[in-house]
């Protein structure tokens, strides 16, 4: 009996350790980012980060203002999410509720394929195909801007939104739909008035996860957004995102220099934004579940 209890305890310990690994890893990453970033607080001081001039490699006074990078990331992320929502949600509704099983067999692998395209490949596609189209359609001097980046990122978010929303829609109990139909509602009325609202928490979680994918994406935006550190809400202007800045500049900074530490501050802020998105998603989920 005692031996069995010990074994029970051991197994429980293994599972607890497994479950807590991710907490530990996130904590360690945060600690590491913070440790590398911290000396910036004394020299040249945190006030430097609250500026609109990002010009770290210069013969003049270097500028470490993170505001253009934060606004750049937010502009691209929100636009991409807004573009992805209708495609993602409508697609999920269609696949879950309306498509014949043959159509589903064809659609699903392609959506999964879209999710699996490496972002460099998508970036290359953006540079060669999407950017010239955006330039010609909107009659702009250049297609390397926030809109092109948002379009590519929407392509990346759509598969995530579709597959998770679809699961949520399918999880709605059949009895709900049967009740709605029995009351005389049409199929479309049932979908919009019963099924989708019942699946709303899952759909919102899907959108949030899509957004999480978008804000952390690096390679595709680095290739097509033009990377000029401007503070702008104009989608036709180039923007420099936080992720692209880290990717582009980390390779050649002097370790321990203010520029190096400023890049780690970007990492800290990016991580905090991701935390906030997740936290909001959890709150929304809980409210809908009630």
């Amino acid at each position: 009996m005692n031996r069995r209890y010990q074994r029970e305890l051991f197994v429980k310990f293994v599972f607890t350790a497994g479950a807590s690994t991710s907490i530990l890893v996130v904590f360690l990453i945060f600690l590491f980012l913070f440790r590398e970033a911290l000396p910036f607080a004394w020299n040249p001081g945190l006030g430097e980060l609250v500026g609109t001039r990002w010009m770290p490699v210069t013969f003049q006074q270097p500028g470490y203002g993170l505001i253009p990078l934060i606004t750049g990331s937010l502009l691209v992320t929100f636009t991409a999410t807004l573009i992805a929502i209708p495609f993602g949600v409508l697609g999920a509704v269609y696949i879950a509720e309306m498509a014949h099983s043959v159509e589903r067999e064809i659609l699903k692998p392609f959506i999964e394929l879209l999710a699996g395209i490496p972002s460099v490949v998508l970036g290359f596609f953006g540079l060669v195909v999407v950017a010239p189209i955006v330039r010609d359609v909107f009659n702009l001097p250049s297609g390397l801007n926030a809109l092109t980046g948002a379009l590519l990122l929407a392509l990346m978010a759509i598969p995530t939104i579709i597959s998770i929303s679809e699961d949520a829609i399918r999880a709605v109990p059949l009895s709900y739909k049967e009740a709605s139909m029995a009351l005389g509602a049409s199929r479309l009325q049932t979908i919009w008035k019963v099924t989708v609202p019942a699946a709303m928490s899952g759909i919102i979680a899907a959108i949030m996860l899509g957004m999480g994918r978008v804000i952390g994406e690096t390679m595709a935006v680095l290739m097509v957004t033009g990377n000029a550190p401007l503070v702008t809400a104009n989608l036709f202007e180039p923007v420099r995102t936080m992720t692209a800045t880290i990717a582009a500049e980390m390779g050649d900074v002097t370790r321990g220099a203010p520029h190096y530490q400023a890049l780690f501050w970007i990492g800290v802020i990016l991580l905090m934004i991701t935390f906030i998105i997740n936290w909001v998603a959890q709150r929304v989920l809980r409210r809908y579940q009630r």
């Binding site: 210069t58 540079l127 060669v128 250049s142 680095l222 990377n227 000029a228 692209a244």
Partner: peptide, 20 residues
């Protein structure tokens, strides 16, 4: 030794610069 204008578009790779 003057700064680049802020509207200059920065390209991560020479090949993508040539493509544009």
């Amino acid at each position: 030794e003057n700064d680049f204008a802020r509207t200059v578009r920065f390209m991560g790779a020479s090949s993508s610069l040539v493509m544009e």
